[in-house]
Design a protein around this nucleic acid. Sequence first.
DNA 1: CGGAATCCAGGAGGATACTG
DNA 2: CAGTATCCTCCTGGATTCCG
Lengths: 116, 116
Amino acid sequence: MPKKEINPEYLTCPIRQVIARFGDKWSMLVLYTLAENSTGVMRFSELHAHMNDCSQKMLSKTLKSLLDSHLVDRKVYPEVPPRVEYGLTDTGKSLIPAIDTLIAWAKEHFDAVVRP
Amino acid sequence: MPKKEINPEYLTCPIRQVIARFGDKWSMLVLYTLAENSTGVMRFSELHAHMNDCSQKMLSKTLKSLLDSHLVDRKVYPEVPPRVEYGLTDTGKSLIPAIDTLIAWAKEHFDAVVRP
DNA sequence: CGGAATCCAGGAGGATACTG
DNA sequence: CAGTATCCTCCTGGATTCCG
């Protein structure tokens, strides 16, 4: 059964798409962590080390979602032990300035926002 | 019992603060809706009409959270029937450019991200 | 090493009804 | 009008264990 009369325009609403795709707890952090890494690519465990407040289950899930959104790509090396590297796609890279803007804002207004 | 060894630096990590405060489903949308409104202030029902895919419970909750983060202010008029107006604080207004950047990105890269 | 599978608690979020 | 209150469902996300 249909839940309600929702404005169909919402389906193509850009901000809703943004939130739906990386408005979760970890996506932005993954993108940002990859972006600030000098080599451009990181292994799973390396990524995890940089954000150890994220469980590997969630990291794995987040990466999969970012892969689906074509923001991150994944390269598997046929070695033993296996090696997998994650990096930003061009689309992913294009998002970084927007994230930087957000972070810059956060740094500047941290006190104003967090104060009791 | 302590859950785990989490890097204490994370507590003041700007991006984590951003996500914690309006990385939810509706906060950005409220901020954006208020920002694009010409008068600068909106009543509860007016806001709700602009985002009818959000229940009023969640709208109310989201507004409260934004009030707590000093991004939105609330003005009550002692009338019958009651009138309450929401608007952006200066801090809230300062966030708009960052959100605009994000939306601009979303518009430009919508197809690249959403494609199957 | 890089995950997947399982189990589980808590919170997000929706629907509806009610109130000052 | 502007919310609360209540109930309920499902997803998020953590902990742990297992696999190629």
